[in-house]
Design a protein around this nucleic acid. Structure first.
Lengths: 337, 337
DNA sequence: GACAATAATGTAACCGGTTACATCGATACA
DNA sequence: TGTATCGATGTAACCGGTTACATTATTGTC
């Protein structure tokens, strides 16, 4: 592997000239530039990124902390991150945390150890050990999708409460009054916000909110299936189910069908996210569309802005959502009372 | 940020002693070790990974070249890679190539530029510029899932031909004789192998192989939907469709249903991969299960072995597949002649 | 033609670890 | 007591770039 000194020797110039030729060609005379470039070519020289990174104290890598890549929604977010990062000359270090906090903290250590310049956190958890968060000082972190209540950094999220409310209102407008919810993990702010929106809509319609109508899930197909099973065992069946994501909705549909019931005829189902499978499921899923790749792209852009212009102020962005009505929700066929 | 010299000063020892305390504690006297560890603690010292990497010429990163993270199957493979890499102290640099070869080559340059120690390539394309591939010399690359015909490196794949044959035989055993195929990209070795297996089965059963029964797709839901549309416009309908992956199968099912036909009553559908959605689709999908996360884990392990023991010989592994029969395939209801 | 200003290039320190080699003290043995 | 051996520690070179500062060449102005 050839290094800058070999190239310098080959071109008959100093290492500084080689470095300058490659970094700011305009301050080198054309004749020298030619010589150097020829030598670079001849030597098959490529600057050693490790040396560059070491010297410039910049890795040009972003660490992305994600609970699971295997989740369709996150996969799209990551795809967006990757695209934006690549455009701006950054690499993406993928950190699958499986929701385990010690893994998150460990991965965040990469920033401290200078293996990444910053972190994109897709979960509501601050992976930096407490003392590293100097108040008022911007962390090299952007928190997207599911955000901390008091994030010490820039955030990008949906108005989850409003979106959940809209979705619930849609169900109510179809005549449903007995609407259960299949939630994500209970501690998550995402769940809290969506439950709040659901409750807002119910109460605005004069329907009593009942915590026993919340069923636990974890955003997987299997958990939606399981929760639907529990729900079907209840003495009174709901006429509609609001699932906190599309995967759980698809899992629930399967379970309901296995119980011999029809969607939406017997029970309406709504999801959240509008993953690609949502419009291909049977029946196609009514859901809240959120711009997954934009989440990723904006997160990467905001983080890189912060890294390149440290004075960039902390920002909190909200991306637009959209209610997409498909065939999994239909007018309520019967009135329970 | 404190460095090793500050710690040395604090502990009243030399930098070498600090380095040794952290790397090989056993060759340092217990008393000194204590002093140093206390100083490390006091200074909040963490070795600068960039410096370590630079000096040791190892980044401990693996570059993963993947066409799209957004694909459910790849997402699982990546998840497996990440887990194995993390266990062995490696990071994963995600490189979304969108199937564009120039992006692949560019990313492979990261290895040459020492930003990653090796590459896991999930597509049949050699991203290293021709001359970099010295014959007989092991590249720091492992090729998994879709592999090159003459890969200059270790590979991990399925016996795609045998798997496709089994799946086709399953359809034939149900009485189907008019079986079309929705393919992936035609140039891909994956497609070639699967078509070969499909053809093997047809010919073994005395059914004429007809290239006009191959429809083009690109592994997305939408392409399966589209291909099914073309297929439904043909003068004679098939009684079964073999889709080269589950996404396209699910897309095809949707299109067929929209045409007023039933799966599997009118047309049987089979997929490939056994993604999570396969068992939750309507009807649940008959498919070939392949161990996606094992692909990832093995690929990472093999690459890391190669990096840590360069004498490791090139290996070509085949992972097991399994025919999973669900409800999307059923006996052929009518005999065309 | 002399001098200042500017452009082009060279020299060498530096980033923060690692590690070969040197040094020093203690113990062991003749 | 002298010397060989070994363990513990220190010194300094090194990895391969970048860049402040120094030096030299070139151009412009009076």
């Amino acid at each position: 592997m050839s290094n800058i000194r070999k190239v310098a020797e080959l071109a008959g110039v100093s290492v500084a000239t080689v470095s300058r030729t490659l970094k700011s060609p305009d301050i080198v005379s054309p004749a020298t530039r030619d010589k150097v470039l020829k030598a670079v070519e001849a030597a098959g020289y490529r600057p050693n990124r490790m040396a560059v990174q070491f010297r410039s104290r910049r890795t040009h890598n972003l660490a992305v902390l994600v609970p699971t890549v295997a989740n369709t929604f996150f996969a799209r977010v990551i795809s967006g991150i990757e695209q934006a990062a690549q455009q701006r000359g950054y690499g993406v270090l993928l950190c699958n945390t499986q929701g385990r906090e010690e893994v998150e903290t460990q991965y965040a250590g990469m920033v401290a150890a200078r293996q990444a310049d910053g972190v994109i956190q897709l979960r509501a958890f601050n992976p930096f050990p407490g003392d590293a968060v100097t108040p008022g000082q911007a962390l090299p972190m952007v928190n997207a999708c599911e955000v901390l209540d008091e994030a010490p950094c820039s955030t990008i999220q949906l108005d989850n409460r409003a979106a959940a409310r809209e979705l619930t209102e849609h169900l109510i407008s179809l005549g449903h009054r007995h609407i259960t919810m299949i939630q994500g993990p209970r501690r998550s702010p995402l769940t809290r916000e969506r439950v709040a929106g659901y409750r807002d809509a119910l109460e605005a319609a004069g329907i009593r909110f009942d915590a026993s109508m919340l069923y636990g899930g974890d955003f997987t197909l299997a958990s939606g299936y399981r929760a639907a099973g529990e729900l079907l065992a209840a003495p009174v069946l709901p006429t509609a189910i609001f699932c906190e994501n599309d995967e759980m909705a698809i899992g629930a549909i399967r379970r309901i069908r296995e119980a011999g019931l029809l969607v939406p005829d017997d029970i309406s189902i709504a999801g959240f996210d509008d993953i690609a499978f949502a419009s291909f499921s049977e029946p196609p899923l009514t859901t809240i569309a959120q711009p997954a790749d934009t989440f990723g792209r904006r997160a990467a852009d905001m983080l890189i802005d912060l890294l390149e212009y440290p004075a960039t102020p902390v920002r909190h962005e909200t991306l637009p959502h959209r209610l997409v009505v498909r065939d999994s929700t239909a007018p309520c066929a019967w009135r329970p009372e």
